[in-house]
């Protein structure tokens, strides 16, 4: 029973063989996910956890268990890379980088999360410019 209900990407199109998800993530982010004790520190401190379908520790768990639907999780897109989890993790796991790795798996398949055309002109004029650069860096491949 999965907590991920969204269907953003077709997991089968990700070309990940059995057991390859964790390898791919570890290669991209350089972190060892198996070192996680599932203590929940990252999740408790995450400012966006209330809106997430999977809490950050569950994302790690899903990856370890080779549950590829983690790629459809809202969580990976909600993470704004504030590094709070990485700062406090007793296991010295940089969860921020794990989230980026999961985003990259999708973005590198040329699938964009954000459609530039959907942003209104008024917003482009009022919202600080760096927010756009940041958004594109995170959500556009």
């Amino acid at each position: 029973m999965s907590k991920v209900t969204e269907k953003f990407v077709d997991i089968n199109s990700m070309n990940l063989k059995k057991g390859e998800l964790v390898k791919e993530v570890e290669e991209l982010c350089g972190e060892n996910l198996f070192g996680c004790y599932q203590c929940g520190t990252c999740s408790a401190g995450c400012p966006f956890v209330d809106d997430m379908d999977l809490s950050p520790d569950e994302v790690i768990r899903y990856v370890i268990l080779d549950r590829k639907e983690v790629l459809n999780s809202k969580t990976i897109w909600l993470c704004a890379a504030c590094y709070t989890c990485a700062e406090r993790c007793p296991r010295n796991i940089n969860i921020t980088k794990i989230m980026e790795a999961l985003r990259q798996i999708i973005l590198r398949k040329n699938i964009d999360r954000t459609l530039l055309t959907k942003i209104a002109k008024e917003e482009k004029e009022t919202i600080p410019q760096l927010a756009f650069v940041c958004l594109f860096r995170k959500n556009v491949g």
Partner: peptide
């Protein structure tokens, strides 16, 4: 004081950032 303000989500997740 050290918690994230919502950052770039201000573009696509306005309510989320207002909540923050």
């Amino acid at each position: 004081k050290i918690e994230c303000c919502g950052s770039y989500h201000t573009i696509e997740e306005k309510k989320l950032v207002s909540d923050r």
